[in-house]
Design a protein around this nucleic acid. Sequence first.
RNA 1: GCGGACGUGGCGGAACCGGUAGACGCAGCAGACUUAAAAUCUGUCGGCCCCAGGCCGUCCGGGUUCGAGUCCCGGCGUCCGCACCA
Length: 857
Amino acid sequence: MARYNPKEVEPRWRAAWDEAGVFRTRTPEQAAGKPKYYVLEMFPYPSGNIHMGHARNYVMGDVVARYKRAKGFNVLHPMGWDAFGMPAENAAMERGVHPKAWTWQNIDNMRAQLKLLGLSIDWEREFATCDPAYYGRQQRWFLDLFRRGLVYRKEGVVNWDPVDQTVLANEQVIDGRGWRSGALVEKRKLSQWFLRITDYAEELLEGLGGLDRWPEKVRLMQENWIGKSRGLQFRFDFAGEAPAGFESGIEVYTTRPDTLFGASFVGIAPDHPLAEALAAESPDIAAFVEEARRGGATEAEIETGEKKGVFTGLYVEHPFEPGRRLPVWIANFILMHYGTGAIFACPAHDQRDLDFCRKYDLPVLPVVLPPGEDPGSFNIDQEAYTGPGTLYNSAFLDGMDTETGLAEAIRRMEALGRGRGTTVWRLRDWGVSRQRYWGCPIPIANCATCGPVPAADLPVVLPDDVSFDVPGNPLVRHPSWKHTTCPSCGAAAERETDTLDTFVDSSWYFARFANPAAEPPIDTAAADYWLPVDQYIGGVEHAILHLLYARFVTRALTDAGWTSVREPFAGLFTQGMVTHETYRADDGKWVEPTDVEVETVDGRRVARRLSTGETLKIGDVEKMSKSKKNVVAPEEILDAYGVDAGRLFVLSDSPPERDVQWTTGGVEGSWRFVNRVWAEFDGLPEGEVPAADADAAQALRRATHKAIKAVGDGFESFRFNSAIARLYEFVNVLKAAPVEQTGSQARREALSALARLVAPIVPHLAEACWERLGESGMAVDAPWPAFDPALAVDEEIALPVQVNGKRRGELKVRPGTPEKEVEQIALSDEAVKRHLEGLSVRKVIVVRDRIVNIVAG
RNA sequence: GCGGACGUGGCGGAACCGGUAGACGCAGCAGACUUAAAAUCUGUCGGCCCCAGGCCGUCCGGGUUCGAGUCCCGGCGUCCGCACCA
């Protein structure tokens, strides 16, 4: 028999799918009542090449898409490009290519690579976010949000690279220096555009509760990120004369108003307005504020979390104890952007406050007595007590438990009119300004008289004639682009030169896929039909940012009337990475796997470099990365084993949410399986062959239906590795049951099912098998094989018998045999009897069709 | 520090609601085919012993249960996320 030849078979079937247009999405009308199913993988950034991580991601989505298609769903499975971003500009600076040319070149390259994977994608819906046809529509809804008050401009503190003249993202600041320039990064106040995501904080938090098809982990991460906290905001009045402009005292926020009587000082953030006002008059304070602003401190200080502060010379009065004065300090551990940027410190019951007070010799007064402690002897040394207890040293709160005291303190403060119970969020508004060229221009015109006004003619298109020979944003120094007229008053105005964070681009693309040709940003009818995405698949690294932004933007767009679906992703799956062993030569240099041969010598694995023959050190298994040179490119695999073997392997060895280790042996195993499946379809007799062994025929039929059930369940529940294991077992059964025994009918049934069961994973092979079976049409269009539970039932099952919990024998019984009967058979079993010798049976536990346990003593 | 996940053969992993631990694959070992190798096929493959049998065994120590990889309590370890959030 001819060996399976993927190089011939695979391209042929891809062409056949293409020609028949099988992956073209059907409209609801064409789908004629089929339920819809939207499968989406996080779209790639066009970096240049498809790597194994991409491949695994898209293959998983493809399995789901193909399976759902076979199950009778109307499937949407599109692909696009998250095409704006810094790497394109870096390429421009380093190699003099235009970002646009570089990006589109990469897209062409990666599209071709992706197509080789045989994905069931509707390529007619493809788009790239750097296309004005896409980002122009993004500008359109951005202005909708602007008009709805969800977009605003304010001064924000940013990381500024003084050499490259640009803002850097937090991830781009390494050890306080710009990742490209190596220059010390400054904190700078810049006017920035923000999206009011905090307006949706409550809803985004509550919505998490309904996301029962999301990983628990991701929901928790978002919950923590949103960070809802309830507490008390109240005012401290100055003792004596207040500094000018601060006559209304200092507003602080606390979650522990119950500990108010243990207050030692009031602290404010270094960038608190009061601190800045005081800095103007005191060089000491100015120096401290300046140091804190420079990213706080040295690295060592951040590591150890050293608390530092400076006394302002000011005092405030304790709100519950007139006459008791508390000093006001500026402290480096207080954040301006959380709460009110000011706190009261209770050192006995907060570790940071305690550290600070010990350092500056401030009083520590315990007010919460832990259960079982004696008020006379309880003491705080270097560790704060943050748990619950009974309040003491606290006037009217004395004797209350912490929870009651907390409520009482809030009630009293509200009665005094000095504060109120409030909710504070960790989540901050989303700064979307980037001083970058390769992004979506913010469609705003800045007019001297009218202020920022929506740009008139959309799309605001990026100019092509820009240069990257000087650092900074080319849009700013472009000779003409930014000059425009005010759409409101007609006077000369300047275009906004900031572009949008690329996370904006990816926060609505799934809605655009519903109809990427639509004139409005979102085709409401199409979006309402397709959304939410039923199954979204991508890496955990997007657990917070992308997924939170997308949830926010979808809600904002819903409120703007573009669609009625508020929650974009009903099901989320986060897949693991593709890893590989690392190899290192004696000189410390990493060696690529293609140049390595690993052998087992005396039970030990030894790596050898093929090109030189030298022995290599086998290192850790790590994420494939260029720096460790442990990358295996998809092309290499396709070339050696074909697409299907590669698709099979990335799914087979590990559960999909976990990392999978790429091994040569593993792919070879998958390649073997491909051939074994193919071999089963060989030599099917022309006419009918009667079953020589009726039991064998029955057994094969049972195995077939068990496989249909198990594989389907595996696909439904994202246990691809288990589904594949069941397929291997099924093929093993087929192999051991020659057609002479089973007859051609049972075998044809089995093969027909097998071709369809493997189709989502190894679609090309499935087509070849389907064709060989002589079936009409293509496997891709064939319905999922029907499962008949009656046919999957075993005639006889092996029932283990335990004596006192230890397995002592095995019974063969028909499924469903009544407990009484099983008990009798078990007690009369020879092996069991032997173990019961000298013992009296106390109790017999029979779990139907599972196990028998005889308790004897 | 806070939050979470995980810990099973030489390796990746399986085991649904507490019911035969180690499915399936990789590596290994033995054999068949071959002049030979590769490929393929067959068998074997947790440890130990007095080997048709038995004992031990799912990170460690307890507990619940007729029965625990699975549930509970207490440790140890690994990984991930957030991190001065008042």
